[in-house]
């Protein structure tokens, strides 16, 4: 298939950048990134160190919000997959949303593990401990890595959408069971080994506001990334469709010329 660079670029960029959706998207991104910057500034310079955790408490403004976004993203993926599977609401919109949210969710889940690991090294002295929350987050991470791998297998879009939606539901059903199992694993037989930094920290005043800002900031960044990922997905689908139509037209023109 021969497509000149101008032809390939024209239909994809011309309309999408002027859509009203992109303005909202840009605004979300700007506000989101600005509030992340504000969280960093408040978290690193303005808020006081904690009496128990000292400077380490500053991770509090990053780690829980990032973890919250990961859970939110996987919840959105499951909800969108359900909406796709339900015949009355079946639409490609839900499939794209599930894909976008799943990808961003895996990113934030990875960030949760990394930031948690750094915090763990500093407070507990080890990068990793088989604590209930850590272990179930790690399981969640590989669970959704599998989901993304399944999505990446090339196949017919309709088939892929249905298959991925079922996979998302099958994976999501496992989340409470695996959390419960890991929780029992660590609490039924050996109590007291679970280190919970949150219990030692009394959050109040400016710290609480910074934490709240962190939650809002990362949620906005999540929305922004998902919107972008969604748009890319839509453009890729359109490019596929248009590429095929163009190739067909070219072949027909060749046939007429010959």
């Amino acid at each position: 298939m021969i497509i000149t660079r101008r032809q390939a670029r024209r239909p994809l960029t011309s309309s999408s950048s002027r859509r009203p959706g992109s303005l909202v998207r840009t605004a979300t991104g700007v506000v989101g990134l600005a509030s992340v910057a504000a969280t960093v500034w408040l978290g690193l310079w303005v808020t006081p160190p904690s009496t128990n955790l000292g400077q380490l408490v500053r991770l509090l403004y990053i780690h829980p919000p990032v973890a919250w976004v990961a859970y939110l993203a996987f919840g959105v993926t499951a909800a969108a997959s359900l909406l796709y599977l339900w015949r009355r609401t079946r639409s490609v919109v839900w499939d794209r949303l599930a894909a976008a949210s799943g990808e961003v969710g895996v990113l934030f889940c990875g960030l949760t593990l990394v930031s948690g690991s750094i915090w763990g090294k500093a407070t507990w002295g080890v990068w990793w401990t088989w604590d209930a929350r850590l272990t179930s987050t790690a399981l969640l991470f590989v669970l959704y890595l599998g989901y993304l791998a399944l999505r990446r297998v090339p196949s017919d879009p309709g088939t892929r959408a249905k298959r991925s939606a079922v996979a998302a539901i099958l994976a999501f059903a496992d989340v409470p069971i695996s959390y419960l199992s890991v929780y029992w694993w660590k609490t039924l037989h050996q109590t007291g080994t679970v280190l919970n930094p949150q219990r030692q920290v009394h959050v109040h005043g400016l710290m609480a506001w910074t934490l709240l800002l962190g939650f809002c900031a990362f949620t906005l960044v999540y929305a922004w990334l998902v919107a972008h990922r969604y748009a890319v997905e839509a453009l890729a689908e359109r490019q596929q469709g248009e590429g095929l139509a163009r190739a067909l037209a070219e072949r027909r023109a060749e046939g007429r010329a010959a």
């Binding site: 791998a149 994976a171 496992d174």
Partner: peptide, 15 residues
Amino acid sequence: LLPLLLLPVVAPVLL
């Protein structure tokens, strides 16, 4: 792909 999809899901069974 099957082991990657299946094994994390059945992790609670193992446990």
